[in-house]
């Protein structure tokens, strides 16, 4: 920053040509290990808060954790999580989203960054901060300015076709969860087919069929988080952005031919 040390700025009333240099600094302190920020997105009611509760239950014994929730109304999710008793209540913060939950995790992440930074300052060093998005539609994903990694959660109750519909969360999130598999028989969904659809849309990115009633799947989820955390720590995890509206055909997939890309 060559010309920004000296306090020689003219009185601001005199209109000067703009002297400022575009900053190339990143906000994040470099070199300091900070918590992995893991976003959890997905449509309303698919089980995001339950996944947060599960992760706290599985991991809070070994990791220093905190949670930020985004909701249509401020603190419904936070209250649910506090009452679940899986984490000290003061480590669960809710942010106001001005009825713009989508904006809060992508276009303008200020409020969420503040909450994450506050938690790190108050209880840090932390290993893992979970951020739940407000339940939104299939296009709502986290900006890498907020989340280092993200999982996207759909459920069998939303119907077997959801995975095939695609959208940036389904095709590009670091992990796609097909949740509530225990309900599959009641809603006549073929879990294996739904997972296969999801896999073919994701070009090799992982898919996990989850139910809180299936301990094996819960263990897999916890292991996935541990592995991302390990990669975050050794610097091999590179945050990627699923984008707000990645067209289906842009999925990093070899399995896809033009024959059935159905964008536009």
């Amino acid at each position: 920053m060559p010309d920004q040390q000296q306090p020689t700025q003219q009185p601001p009333t005199q209109q000067q040509p703009n002297q400022q240099q575009p900053g190339d600094h990143h906000d994040r302190p470099t070199g300091t290990p900070r918590a992995l920020r893991l976003g959890v997105a997905g449509p309303v009611g698919t089980g995001k808060s339950s996944i947060l509760a599960t992760l706290c239950r599985e991991l809070a014994g070994e990791l220093a954790m905190a949670v930020v929730t985004n909701d249509i109304y401020t603190d419904e999710d936070a209250r649910f999580l506090r009452s679940a008793g899986v984490l000290p209540t003061e480590r669960i913060r809710a942010v106001e989203t001005g009825a713009c939950p989508h904006t809060a995790i992508r276009d303008d992440v200020s409020a969420n960054l503040d909450a994450v930074e506050d938690l790190e300052e108050a209880y840090g060093p932390l290993d893992l901060v979970l951020v739940e998005s407000g339940g939104d539609n299939l296009t709502a994903t986290f900006s890498p300015a907020l989340a280092d990694a993200q999982l996207f959660c759909i459920d069998v109750a939303g119907g077997g076709d959801v995975a095939r519909k695609g959208g940036p969360g389904i095709t590009g999130a670091d992990l796609l969860i097909v949740n509530k598999t225990d309900l599959a028989p009641y809603v006549e969904v073929d879990v294996a087919a739904m997972v296969a659809d999801a896999r073919s849309a994701r070009g090799g990115l992982p898919v996990l069929a989850l139910s809180r009633k299936d301990p094996g799947s819960v263990a897999e989820l916890a292991d996935w988080v541990r592995s991302v955390l390990a990669r975050h720590r050794d610097g091999t995890h590179i945050p990627s952005d699923p984008g707000p509206m990645a067209p289906h055909s842009h999925a990093p997939s070899h399995a896809h031919s033009h024959a059935h890309s159905h964008d536009s």
Partner: peptide
């Protein structure tokens, strides 16, 4: 103060070393 943090973050991004 909460709203100020967002503005502060932007100012830092644009000119982190400026005395202002």
């Amino acid at each position: 103060a909460a709203l100020g943090r967002g503005v502060h973050r932007l100012a830092r991004r644009l000119a982190p070393d400026r005395p202002a």
